[in-house]
Nucleic acid binder design. Structure first.
Length: 424
RNA sequence: GUGAGAGUAGCUCAGUUGGCAGAGCACUGGAUUGUGGCUCCAGUGGUCGUGGGUUCAAAUCCCAUCUCUCACCCCA
């Protein structure tokens, strides 16, 4: 129980061992994968001027309208804790003219995002994303390479049951036309829809297509699909993408109902969903945002990227993989008696110089309680040092699993340690 | 922002019509004074989420509030 009155803020949390090992495992696999595919890290601030997000994400989106942590700083500027990463990366790209600096165009970021939402499974007010952005490449090919990279990393992480949903939501040329037609058709069937959907016809017509109620589903089945209303260029792009995905044998599901909540998306959108996450089942999502760089004051170049929710990925990660992270140091040093600490320190140093991690405890324990602790920590070996060992310049190494132990003379320590290093 | 459930020891949870605050696991010590796990014995540990109210008496009833969980909504 926490000390009186001291608690963390609603919707945020601490992450500590052993769970932190799972986080680092996931982060490492993504970073290794990014490196293989030629991405480099970019670090951007956690807060920005509010208008970056207003312009970037879209003034009327839910995120900007009601979910941002916005405050006024001491000089009267409106500041917002970032609710997502793309706007910041694009801002940095534009601000520093990175397109002129070098031809390099593939970036990834990792860090916390902030949204004021009601907490729920897989949804927190401070949550962590890893994301990638590719600038100045409007080809379907880069999309395929990126999706292949997603598959690559997810497989390495041990995900076997997931589904890649792909859609095209058109562009500012063709999408308004589709929405107009969809609204008309929905209004014709208005009486058959649930109350929520009746409201959505005006607020968010695309969202009606995603309703789970049976009565609505029958209506939805007869509704037009956005992919049938794409303009020539968008259609060409989309068909090329699907063809390439098939060629690369990347499994996907065409989902004409997949829409994104951020205004900047055009054409290709995609999402990876898993089963065991409850309502928040999307672990990764993204798409193309060709107009955003220009919108934020840069050249008219394209953008494509995705973000993944680390919190959700940790929850969804296969249970047996999670259990393999109970990793404490193999060695525990137990010392007891008068004037043995100097000797013990020198032994610890020897181990560490050879790259072998050792844990010990300085609370003046008896051998019994040392060993009990070592057992709890799952130590494989315990180094025992008492007055006798100091006097005779040796250590005892006990194998906890076998229950056996052997004496090592201090002079033989180096070769013993080399032997261990080789085994690991 | 809306709806439902929950909050008691470090953890998982009991606690009857209101009547001394409980168990298991964990922890500390001992049985075994330089050797873990198994067993036995003993011990530490609580502002019953918080603040009010009713009552001789509240973990229990009432009001408020905070947090967690799940769903709506939205998104990664």
């Amino acid at each position: 129980m926490a000390a009186k009155g001291i608690k963390c803020v609603k919707g945020v949390r601490d992450i500590f061992p052993p769970e932190i090992d799972i986080w680092k495992f996931i982060e490492n696999i993504w970073e290794e994968t990014f490196s293989l595919y030629g991405f480099k890290e970019i670090r951007v601030p956690i807060f920005e001027y509010t208008n970056l997000f207003q312009r970037g994400i879209g003034e009327s989106t839910d995120i900007v309208e009601k979910e941002m942590y916005t405050f006024t700083d001491k000089s009267g500027n409106s500041i917002t804790l970032r609710p997502e990463g793309t706007a910041s990366v694009v801002r940095a790209y534009v601000e520093h003219n990175l397109n002129k600096e070098s031809p390099f165009n593939k970036f990834y970021y990792i860090g916390p995002m902030f949204r004021y939402e009601r907490p729920q499974k897989g949804r927190y007010r401070q949550f962590y994303q890893i994301g990638v952005e590719v600038f100045d490449d409007n080809s379907p090919e880069i999309e395929v390479e990126t999706l292949e990279m997603v598959n690559f990393a997810l497989k390495k992480l041990g995900f076997s049951k997931y589904e890649l949903n792909v859609n095209s939501i058109g562009c500012p040329e063709c999408r308004p036309n589709f929405i107009k037609i969809l609204k008309e058709k929905l209004n014709e069937n208005k009486e058959k829809l649930c109350d929520d959907c009746k409201r959505r016809i005006d607020t968010n017509p695309l969202r009606v297509l995603d309703c789970k109620k049976e009565s609505c589903k029958t209506v939805i089945n007869e509704m037009p699909k956005i992919t049938e209303y794409l303009c020539e260029d968008c259609k060409k792009h989309h068909l090329r993408l699907l063809k390439l995905l098939k060629g690369r044998k990347i499994n996907y599901v065409e989902n004409p109902l997949l829409v994104r909540g951020l205004d900047y998306y055009v054409r290709t959108t995609f999402e990876v969903v898993v089963e065991n996450l409850g309502a928040q089942n999307a672990i990764l999502g993204g798409g193309r945002y060709d107009g955003l760089v220009k919108e934020l004051g840069g050249p008219d170049i394209s953008g494509f990227g995705f973000a993944l929710g680390l919190d959700r990925m940790v929850i969804a990660l296969n249970e047996n993989i999670k259990n393999s992270f109970q990793k404490n140091p193999d060695f525990y040093l137990a010392y007891f008696g008068e004037n043995v600490i100097d000797y013990s320190f020198s032994i610890l140093e020897k181990f560490r110089e050879k790259g072998i991690s050792v844990y010990t405890n300085f609370k003046g324990r008896s051998f019994k309680s040392h060993l009990r602790l070592a057992n709890r920590l799952n130590s494989k070996f315990v180094i025992l040092i008492g007055e006798d060992e100091v006097k005779n310049n040796k250590i005892i190494v006990k194998n906890m699993k076998e229950g056996t132990q052997r004496e090592i003379k201090f002079d033989d320590l180096n070769s013993f340690l080399d032997e261990i290093s080789k085994e690991n």
